[in-house]
């Protein structure tokens, strides 16, 4: 391989790689296809005020709870195992978004994931809208509970 050909080949390969990274970032659901990646990471600053969703357990083993408890506060009682937020937060959020959008099929899909993966007993639970200031939430855990958008029952056969 001559020097000039090697120069053109290496330059083209590098440029082609980054072009493919951009191409797959907009043409795949994951935003990339191994080994191509656009390296556009943390490109948007998260909003200060966020609307999210939380799961609230209102009935457990057929008994209504005096004080319904949020999913993240019920470690070890209603879970099959102790979970970190990364494992359930996304699924609950996407379930809430799909309930609001009326996407019935996706609601069933994410509901099934939550009930099979996270809930170890038959429960009645609500999906509620929450609002929080990102910085305040991180410091104090405070959020504002909003409207209930769905009440769902996880039956024993679904688990």
């Amino acid at each position: 391989m001559s020097y000039n050909f090697l120069k053109i080949f290496l330059t083209s390969t590098i440029l082609l790689y980054f072009y493919m990274g951009f191409y797959f970032s907009s043409h795949t659901s994951e935003g990339e296809a191994y080994p191509f990646f656009s390296w556009f990471v943390f490109t948007r600053v998260p909003p200060q005020f966020i609307t999210g969703y939380a799961l609230k357990i209102v009935e457990y083993e057929g008994k209504k709870l005096d004080s319904p408890v949020f999913f993240q506060d019920s470690h070890g009682i209603y879970f099959k195992k102790i979970l970190t937020m990364t494992e359930y937060d996304y699924t609950i959020r996407v379930l809430g978004e799909n309930i609001e959008r009326g996407e019935t099929e996706k609601v069933e899909q994410y509901r099934k994931t939550i009930e099979e993966s996270f809930l170890s007993q038959p429960v009645v639970y609500e999906i509620v809208r929450i609002e929080f200031d990102t910085l305040k939430y991180w410091k104090t855990g405070q959020f504002t509970e909003g409207e209930r958008i769905a009440t769902l029952t996880a039956k024993e056969k679904d688990l």
Partner: peptide, 27 residues
């Protein structure tokens, strides 16, 4: 984000928001 009227990367609170949001997400 600047033209969308959102907090953008050149704003003073950008780093704080990235940290708070990310650490919350990864618990």
């Amino acid at each position: 984000q600047y033209f969308a009227g959102q907090t953008h990367a050149f704003a003073p609170e950008a780093l704080a928001l990235h940290i708070a949001y990310w650490l919350r997400n990864i618990d």
